[in-house]
């Protein structure tokens, strides 16, 4: 607990924590500004199209894109930076030389960062809901009560299922930063893996299109799979996010989800969620094994 409390203090006092949270919130704010302006334009033209757009739980999907989609990418960079800086600033040396268990230290760091990311996710959802109402107020669009009917349950499902995905994506940066002993390397490689997987899955999905043609000739696209590249770290999280109330293929777009959603069968939640948790555990495990073997100079 002492170590976790220390990690929370470090995160709270680090400027990057607030900068990245602000980036996510500003992007979400801009998004709702554009949505509101678009709806105003449509209303001005006399069209009723899009008037119901500020409905829940559909808006949870939009907020989820910032919490888990862009938020996941930011979390990867953030966690890599916070973990890797222990090497860059040489502070890990102090901790190890004081007789702290390396495994305990990393687990406490992971737990501390998980709490920080959880708080960040809650802030984004709270701010997102607030922005929906603000957009409705400013642009005179009716907003449904987010707690009406299954509203609260929908919100809870978004948070409970989205949180492991956020952690798993962040854990990618965690493991890379520990293995490479650098905050910059952790962030850069984390982003590169994210984008690289997105590119790879898109290419592989395109290559698989001829396999769908049989169904296409019969009058529709026949989805195939699930195939192996749907189980890669970023893609698999997308399949969890897709089943969230209000979720859509857009959420998993970071891993070529648009194409995947069209041509590939989705990975069921019963398979996707355990895979996410396994990736999370493996990433932390790899980090602990790596640190236990490392010599600190």
């Amino acid at each position: 607990m002492r170590l976790i409390r220390a990690e929370l203090l470090k995160a709270r006092r680090r400027t990057m924590t607030w900068v990245l949270l602000t980036v996510a919130l500003v992007l979400m704010g801009l998004s709702y500004l554009l949505i509101g302006l678009g709806m105003s334009a449509l209303r001005g033209s006399g069209s009723d199209f899009g008037l119901g757009i500020l409905e829940f739980p559909a808006q949870y999907a939009t907020i989820g894109q910032f919490a888990f989609g862009i938020g996941g990418l930011l979390a990867t960079v953030y966690v890599a930076a916070l973990v890797g800086s222990d090497w860059n600033w040489g502070v890990l040396r102090n901790v190890v030389a004081r007789g702290e268990s390396r495994a305990n230290y990393l687990l406490a760091k992971a737990a501390g960062l998980a709490i920080v990311l959880g708080i960040g996710m809650l802030i984004i959802f709270a701010a997102g809901i607030l922005m929906v109402f603000l957009a409705g107020l400013v642009f005179n669009v009716p907003v449904s009560n987010p707690l009406r009917g299954r509203g609260l349950q929908d919100l809870a499902e978004n948070l409970v299922l989205g949180y492991p995905v956020l952690l798993q994506r962040a854990a990618l940066g965690f493991a890379v930063a520990v293995v490479m002993r650098s905050q910059l390397a952790g962030s850069v490689v984390g982003i590169a893996l994210w984008l690289g997987e997105s590119f790879l899955t898109t290419v592989l999905t395109v290559i698989s299109i001829p396999n769908n043609l049989g169904g296409f000739i019969d009058g529709g696209i026949q989805q195939i799979g699930p195939v192996w590249y749907q189980f890669l770290p970023i893609s698999i999280g997308g399949y969890v996010l897709n089943v969230l109330p209000g979720g859509s293929g857009l959420v998993s777009a970071a891993a070529g989800g648009g194409l995947q959603g069209l041509f590939l069968k989705p990975v069921p939640l019963e398979l996707a969620l355990p895979m996410v948790l396994i990736y999370l555990a493996v990433a932390i495990g790899v980090a602990i094994v790596a640190l236990n073997r490392q010599e600190i100079v």
């Binding site: 470090k10 006092r13 680090r14 600033w89 040489g90 502070v91 040396r93």
Partner: peptide, 14 residues
Amino acid sequence: VGSLIETPSFYPYL
């Protein structure tokens, strides 16, 4: 054991 190995290392923002 208490130690100061090489240069003192701290979190610069704390």
